[in-house]
Structure formats: structure tokens, C-alpha cells
Design a protein around this nucleic acid. Structure first.
Lengths: 336, 336
DNA sequence: CTTGACTCCCAAAACGTTTTGGATGATTTT
DNA sequence: AAAATCATCCAAAACGTTTTGGGAGTCAAG
């Protein structure tokens, strides 16, 4: 309704003075500033966002690309993270737009639209691949971005990631200490960095223990994927006595398979992510999670700092993984 | 990098002609249009979003407010819906920004910021209350919005909602037909329309069956809330033999309480929402869900149509509820 | 030869803000 | 008394696009 021009006119002042009064510049008298402030409050004046964005050459927006596998939109804990991120970005005047990949368009095309159209000031990339074309594109444009998950890019970039290698390494060693000798790995597609790192951690531990690494399956990182992998494992003559799962969703699918085939928890299982729902499955799911507190806040902070021009090397967070011990990992190795 | 001015200069044309060529106006020759199109493609030209927004007086943005209860950000199936909505909005050139309520600000303040700053063209409201101040504000401003869930507002507004009354009415009658006589209701806060409507459905059915309506508890619509309500019910001497839960999350909490107290499914349970995880709980959760297909697409369509000025009365969708029968509702009434 | 219609193009205005580079008096310093 | 400083204000430019309201030039009809 009210814009700067009308406000200035009603006050008998210039647009410049009103603008600078509201922005708290020192070259407007205290009396005038107060008069302007009161009039602005009364009129409910808010600067037009589009106009300010054009003038300041900032979109005041950050986009997060959502990988849209049919019917399944990334890990379920995403929304909590995004919400936290959006809240902290808002504190700096930025809003978060969610950008699922439209039908018939690639994630790369979408990045191009957002970057070249100056629709956003930075991008947040999730589900990074080891070789990620989005990362390469943004780097070639010199456009600010932060990833959730590392890549194998030669050039450094800001990221937040959990140390999946160490986590899965430790989990596997722990199963070994508990007496397990046939420890399977149910992983996700290896082009994803997180899936690869976790598998590498499992594999390294197995080698250190002198165990074979043939109990290893890859599936879609969903309940269904875990379910199918578990069915395949249960059909083998050399069944595992423990299963390390790349994600909680896969682990939940594994638990379901165990129930259907063996009627209950016949094999130790551990997942990763600490989905809230894990506490409510039967048996309650043992899992791992990234340390480091409020993830959304961290992403927001990294985004702001990369927009501000801080070098990538100072914007990389690798968080340790901790165990969340519940009931699904305690089975003795002879149970099968 | 490239803007209209540079593009025009390199082509020896005016800004106007280049703009109109790219927009497909008929007053530019086919030859020129093609020449312009090729140059634009080659330069990777995309119109500056802020500039277009200012000129066209449209923000090309829609905001969805996320209620941020501590640690729990609305139903878990929100993200799927939002993703679908964002994807369809993108088809019309609109992006979806997620707007969690910042610390120390009310949802109303946030609406005000978005509306008066012309940051968005419409708003999507979730978790509506029976008397919702956000709705009242937007109505007073004549600002386009769509709600997920009805309100008791005197003025019509666009919404999408499930017929929770009928769903809970039918579910309660079904339990009665199966022989249950002590049917409890575990509901959410009654200021929310959905929670109230579902409770009303249960209550109406109980009255029709001549049953008392004292087995009725309200809690936060979370696993924890359901868990606590169930503990209270299980401690009573006149335990229920069936429980109707306002949400799947509450139902999952109820199942956990049953496991802990009785060691398994001792009471029939049904939830609402059809969370994907429901298929993986033990026992698999019987539930209800809204019919009507792709919810996100429907929201996008309603948003676009309300922006276009269609009257509210033609933009209201009330969808039937259908049962999703799994294993948690099949217990005979004498089991307790 | 004039008129009107048609095709193709363009200069300038407009959107609402922020910022630049002074301008105007009043006050202090030299 | 002149010069410098200070406090307060403002006109105009700029951001990059879309849209308005024509302006040339060409061609056919009168």
C-alpha cells in the first residue's frame, strides 16, 4: 500500500531522507528520524522487496535443490534441517526456497536457471554425488554454494558432512569385538559420496579383521531397498549375523524382512541417521548420528559466510559420528 | 553476466525489440526473432528475476509457513507435499519459500512481513486453527492464500481438507460393529480444526451407539503425546478395547506404550495420515488417509487460481477419507 | 498523389528502492 | 570577517526489465 514516495510526500520530506532515516543513517536529525519512524509504523510501511533486491543486486534468497525420487523425497529428517536453516537465514534477511527438480528437467538445468537468472544468492545442495555436475557448474560460475555431503571435486568447496567412514568403521569393529564374523553391509548407490564413504568404512574394518567382504549389497536408500537386500541376504547359506545399513530407512526395511522371514529379530542391525521414528520401531533401532548440534543453523551460517566471500577451506565441517544404542544391535552372533 | 542492454548492443537492436523478440510478440520479424533467440541462447541470457518482479509487480514467490514446535515440525508427510507443490508452482514460474516462524516472532508478524513487503504473491497456511488469526489478517488485506485444513471463519476462503469428521465417525462405527464397546479417542489440541473435527466424528458415532464419551484424552500431536495418553488409558480400570488416534504419530506412540505395558498389541489401534513409516511399525499400523491424489499439485493449482482472482467458493476441496487396513485394528474386543 | 493499413522497430517511462554527490545554512575556527 | 567545519537535507542516477505510444518505411487501395 504505502511506498516511500507517498510516505515522503505526507511528511514533506524527500524520498532520500525518509529512506535514510529508516535505515538509521547518521545524517538525519534525531527529531526527523523519530517523526519518520512513527509515520512509517503507523502506515505499516515495509520496503518493497523486489525494488530493494534490484537496487542492491541481491536476491535475498537461497535455494535448496530437492532430489525428487518418485514418492520419496530424500531422508525424512530433511524437513527439520531445512526449517532450522530457513529460520536462521531469515535472521539475516534471506529466505529459503525449495526447488524440487521439475519433470523433464535435470538438476543442472535448474541450477542454471537459478544462477543465471540471479534468482538466488547461494545454493544448498543435498545428496551430493562423488562426481557432482551441479558442483562443477557452480564452481565454474564462481557462485556461492554449500553442500550437504562431500564430493571428490579437485577444487575445495564448503560442505557439512558426517565422517561416515569412521562411523561405519567403528560400528563394524564393534560387531567384531562382540564376536560377529559374518557382518553384512547393506548400502546405497555408490555414486553418492555418503554411500561410498560408509561402505569404505565397513570394508576397511572387515579387511583389518581379516574377514571377507562379499556380504555386500547395494540398493535404493529406502525401506524397500533395505527390505529387498535383507531378503537376498537371508536366502544365502552363509547368512550374516549382523548387518550394517547405510541409512535408517534401509535398516527399517531390513527389520521388516527379518520379521517376515524369521518372525523377529534374528540378526543384529544398525542404521545411520537417527530418524525420530527409529525409537518407535520394534525392536527399537540402534543407529548412528552426526554430532554437531543444530544442523540447520550450521548450514545457514556457512551459506552466509560463503556469500560474504570467505574461502572454502574455512567453511568445511566434518562431524564425528556417535552411536545411538537401542535394541536392534544386541543379538549374540550365534543367534542365526 | 549478460543483460538485455548488452545483448541489444551486440545485436545492433534496441532493448525493446530484444525483449519482445524473446517474449514472442508478433511485432518482430521472424528473422530478427531467430537472430535474437540464437544470440540469447549463446550468451546464456536469463532475464534478471528481481528486475522483472519489480516491473511486473509480482514476486513470483509463494510462502508456506511452517509451525515450528520445538523439535517437531508438523506431520512428517509435509515435505512430500511441499515438494510436489513447489514442482507444480515452478511450472507457472513461481517458487515456494518455506517460512518457519523465527524465534520471538508470531506467525502473524511473519504474515505481515511477507504481505506488506510484497515478498510473495500468495501464502499457503498449514495447521489451521478453528479461529486462525493468520486467516483473519490475510482476509482483511484481501491477500490470496490457501489453507491446509478448514477454519471456522465467517468468510469463505480456499482450502484443501480431509473430511475428518466422517472418517473418524466411520472408524468408530466400524469398531462398534466389530463388537468393541469401550472405544477411546486420543486427540490433538482442540484449537486445531483437524483435531476438533476428528474428535467430533468419534463423539457423534459414540452417541449414536449409545456409548459414553469419557474415554477421551488430548495431547500434543506427537509420538510422545500418544505415548502419554496411552499410559493414562492403560492405567484405568475401565480400559478401552480400541483406540482411535488423531494422527499416525500419536498412534505410533500408543503402540509403544502397549508394548511397554502389555508386551504387545493388547488393544486395537487406528491412526490417521498414512505415514509411510506406518507400514514398518510392529504391528503394521492401520490408519486412514485422505483421497484425492497428488496433494501438492492440488495446492499449487488452488494457489494459482486464487492468485488469478477466482472466488473462494470455487476453490474449496473436501476429500473423503479411506481406510488403510493393516494389522493394528484387528484385535477382538475381548483381548483386553 | 494521397490515404490507410500493415510491418517492423524503438525511445522513454515506469516499477520502488538505495546510493552518490552535492547544496544550504548554521556554527565554529582562524 | 573570512574560512572551515558541521548538521541536515535532497535531486538525480542507478538497478534491468516490461510496456506504452508512437515512428519510419512499404505496399495496396482510392
Amino acid at each position: 500500500m504505502a511506498n516511500l514516495k507517498q510516505l515522503a510526500q505526507s511528511l514533506g520530506l524527500s524520498i532520500t531522507t525518509v529512506s535514510r532515516a529508516l535505515d538509521g543513517y547518521s545524517d538525519v536529525s534525531a527529531a526527523t528520524r523519530q517523526r519518520v519512524q512513527e509515520a512509517a509504523d503507523k502506515a505499516g510501511y515495509r520496503p518493497n522487496a523486489s525494488a530493494r533486491r534490484l537496487r542492491k543486486q541481491r536476491a535475498e534468497l537461497v535455494a535448496v535443490t530437492l532430489p525428487s525420487e518418485p514418492g520419496h523425497i530424500g531422508p525424512l529428517h530433511f524437513l527439520d534441517m531445512l526449517s532450522g536453516c530457513a529460520e536462521h537465514l531469515a535472521g539475516a534477511g534471506l529466505n529459503l526456497v525449495i526447488a524440487p527438480v521439475p519433470h523433464g528437467e535435470s538438476e543442472l538445468d535448474m541450477c542454471r536457471r537459478f544462477v543465471d537468472g540471479r534468482r538466488v544468492d547461494a545454493m544448498l545442495l543435498v545428496r551430493t554425488k562423488r562426481h557432482d555436475e551441479r558442483v562443477e557448474f557452480l564452481q565454474s560460475r564462481g557462485f556461492p554454494f554449500v553442500t550437504n555431503g562431500r564430493t571428490e571435486s579437485a577444487i575445495q568447496h564448503p560442505y557439512i558432512d558426517g565422517d561416515g567412514f569412521s562411523g561405519f568403521h567403528a560400528a563394524t569393529l564393534r560387531f567384531h569385538r562382540d564376536g560377529h564374523r559374518r557382518i553384512a553391509h547393506v548400502g546405497g548407490p555408490q555414486e553418492y559420496f555418503f554411500a561410498h564413504a560408509r561402505r569404505q568404512g565397513w570394508e576397511a574394518a572387515m579387511r583389518e579383521c581379516g574377514l571377507a567382504t562379499d556380504l555386500d549389497l547395494q540398493q535404493a536408500p529406502t525401506e524397500q531397498g533395505g527390505y529387498e537386500a535383507a531378503l537376498a541376504l537371508l536366502a544365502r547359506s552363509d547368512r550374516p549375523t549382523a548387518i550394517v545399513c547405510a541409512t535408517d530407512e534401509m535398516a527399517i526395511g531390513v527389520l521388516r524382512a527379518l520379521r517376515e522371514v524369521d518372525g523377529g529379530l534374528s540378526i543384529s542391525v544398525i542404521g545411520h541417521d537417527d530418524l525420530p521414528i527409529g525409537a518407535f520401531t520394534s525392536p527399537a533401532l540402534s543407529t548412528m548420528r552426526m554430532t554437531g548440534g543444530n544442523l540447520g543453523r550450521s548450514f545457514a551460517s556457512l551459506l552466509l559466510r560463503t556469500i560474504a566471500g570467505e574461502p572454502a577451506e574455512t567453511l568445511q565441517e566434518l562431524h564425528a559420528i556417535e552411536f545411538v544404542d537401542r535394541d536392534s544391535h544386541r543379538l549374540p552372533p550365534v543367534a542365526a
